[in-house]
């Protein structure tokens, strides 16, 4: 693998990029590519085809870095977004998939990208989406939390806080003086 830093090499990265993506498109028929700008591509793919797409992108197109996996709760299904960055062509590809709400289960891509371990564990904690085959599915951040997965849209954090906590009254003298003159706290 050649790590080329020359600016010249990146000039026609867009052209080469479309060629590689075109080839992959032919191999996977359930693919929809949208180009946002020279360095951002959005790929919509079916959930079954994603692991194959990722291994192709990593093996053939030089997408060595998994930047992040984001999860979005659309209340009837989950969207998982895999952000891949290529150090060679300087292009970011976001692969979007949709998975069903219950049971929320998907396969791990840890064997393709090691950083996936952290993100999959995080999504499992925050959304309850289980990743089969991921080596670290135990809790990390919410080890002492027993409620529902907090990032779900159905979890109302404000209601939880009002049920759980008290508020402290704050009535300093300066506020009383202002209130005596007819002022008030705007909320």
């Amino acid at each position: 693998m050649v790590w080329d830093q020359d600016k010249e090499a990146t000039k026609d990265n867009y052209a080469s990029q479309t060629i590689v993506l075109d080839q992959i498109l032919h191999e996977l028929d359930t693919l929809n590519i949208e180009q946002k700008n020279n360095q951002r591509f959005r790929v919509d793919v079916s959930a079954e085809a994603l692991p194959a797409l990722l291994s192709l992108l990593k093996g053939r197109a030089g997408y060595t870095q998994l930047s992040a996996i984001s999860c979005v709760d659309w209340e009837d299904e989950f969207e998982l977004v895999y952000h891949l960055w290529s150090y060679e062509t300087k292009v970011l590809v976001s692969a979007h998939i949709r998975i069903q709400y219950t049971p929320a289960v998907y396969v791990s891509v840890y064997d393709i990208y090691t950083p996936a371990g952290f993100f999959e564990r995080d999504i499992y904690e925050m959304y309850g989406v289980y990743f089969e085959g991921s080596p670290m599915m135990e809790k990390f951040i919410l080890t002492e939390w027993h409620g529902p997965a907090p990032m779900l849209k159905s979890f109302d954090t404000l209601k939880y806080v009002n049920d759980m906590f008290n508020w402290q009254e704050y009535q300093p003298d300066w506020l009383k003086e202002i209130q005596a003159k007819g002022g008030k706290v705007v909320s």
Partner: peptide
């Protein structure tokens, strides 16, 4: 083994609100 979550504030949830 790393153990985090001591500084968890739920930023991503707060920002949605």
């Amino acid at each position: 083994k790393a153990d985090g979550g001591y500084l968890h504030r739920g930023f991503e949830k707060l920002m949605e609100g």
